[in-house]
Design a protein around this nucleic acid. Structure first.
Lengths: 251, 251
DNA sequence: TTGATTTTGATTGAATTCGAAAAATAAACT
DNA sequence: AGTTTATTTTTCGAATTCAATCAAAATCAA
């Protein structure tokens, strides 16, 4: 294993764990303790991490991505598993709607690259798609500071111009009785239209979202594919399976 | 196998692997270790890769801002001066259109914060406005990779929903006879509409843009305010002053 | 063809990286 | 405080990798 590979791996580990001890790195890389210590010194020199007694910790990140990636961190393992599965459902020549949100954001690395058109209302999602050279159409409208989502009259008008093979929605609350709910009525409206104009409708919801109800109703559960992780108990699982096509992915 | 073939092959391998060891290259090319070392030295010289102990690694390309800030760097002093002056023209309670582009991007820090609505087709501009908590409306449409600008049918539809007190356009070419021109016809179309729907029309063009003509025509010069720097000679200055309201800012 | 130039592959001593052990330092405990 | 344990730094030899050199092969110019 070459030095830059090790460095990369160490930084990857730090992204997930915030702090890491030397032993974990030696096990992951197969290199000796001495080598890892040297690596850590170099990386600290380059200001890419902070050494601490027993290992290293990641530097306090600056404003930039924090709003986004921080939220993505909650249940990241589960969300990544869900996102990976969802992205696997996308084929070449599909036209796809990707809702603004963290779980849908995580789908991007796993999407097929060619002959794909993606429509989205998430600005960060659009930029990430662009990096992968995927044809991207962004909805118009007012930009929400908290979510970097485009909503409002223009978004509604623009989305009406398209029809989708598949849409993928993140959601704040999913409940057997009250269906899908989200805190912002404007965002709810856009989600509704995405569902209406889409052939196959997928909802990505890690298990923490279940039996939660928020302000604005998006849709009933009928006819939806819901992708979630293993955190649901059997009773819940059965209840939702009656209403939707539930897919449980393993982390 | 000829030298350029080998070089090409090495770069191809690096695209896929991020890092590569010498042995892998010798196996793939059939050339000797010495030859590969010479190749790597040359390629490093040309800044096409980074040598590391045991092999080579691809250069850390900084996707993020590079496209933008790099271009912003050209004539940065002049552009900033122009942007600062232009931003001073914006009052509270205005509704403003900010065209995608580097000079308009530089206006953002100097805009008034309150009771302002900004419409833009530049994704990076929208994000920057958001950081300043300025109410932002983003046009919809297809996203251009090079400029991070939204263009196309949806952009045209969306912009038609608004009327502006002032619009600020960046431009690639400005010429006394051929007017404003820009390389991309789609972007030209959006600029045309911004001008049509705007009361006061401002064009931001540092002096390098003068007497330059590119592919797609945007508009004639009549009725435009042009803001530029001191780099214009007296003859040019007089010529343009006949056609437009020319404002020269000092750096 | 001949001689000059360039490219290539092998060899060698120097430099580097790595792992392990020893010495030094810091934390934890009695 | 004094002892023990854990962690870090330093040191050193072995293994690998590197740069330089040189001769053979291929290419080029007349």
């Amino acid at each position: 294993m070459l030095t830059p590979e090790r460095h990369q791996m160490i930084l990857e580990l730090l992204k997930e764990k915030e702090v890491i001890r030397i032993q974990e790195i030696t096990e992951a890389t197969g290199a000796s303790e001495s080598t890892i210590r040297r690596d850590l010194s170099e990386l600290e020199e380059q200001k890419l991490l902070q050494r601490v007694h027993g290992g290293a910790s990641s530097l306090p990140r600056k404003m930039e991505e924090s709003t986004f990636l921080e939220r993505a961190m909650r249940n990241e393992k589960e969300k990544t598993a869900i996102a990976k599965y969802a992205a696997g459902l996308v084929n070449e020549h599909d036209s796809v709607y990707l809702d603004a949100g963290t779980t849908t954001y995580l789908m991007i690395p796993y999407l097929p690259q060619d002959n794909l058109v993606v429509v989205t209302n998430g600005v960060n999602i659009a930029l990430e798609l662009l990096k992968r050279n995927i044809k991207t159409i962004l909805l118009g409208g007012e930009l929400k500071a908290r979510t970097w989502a485009v909503v409002g009259r223009d978004a509604v008008t623009t989305i009406g111009q398209y029809r989708f093979d598949k849409c993928f929605l993140g959601i704040n609350g999913i409940d057997a009785e009250h269906g899908l709910t989200t805190p912002d009525p404007d965002e709810a409206h856009v989600k509704q239209l995405a569902l209406r104009y889409s052939d196959e409708k997928y909802v990505l919801a890690d298990s923490s979202k279940f039996s939660r109800i928020t302000f604005a109703k998006v849709a009933e559960l009928d006819g939806l594919h819901v992708i979630t992780d293993e955190g649901l108990d059997d009773v819940q699982r059965e209840a939702y399976q009656k209403k939707t096509k539930l897919k449980v992915v393993t982390v």
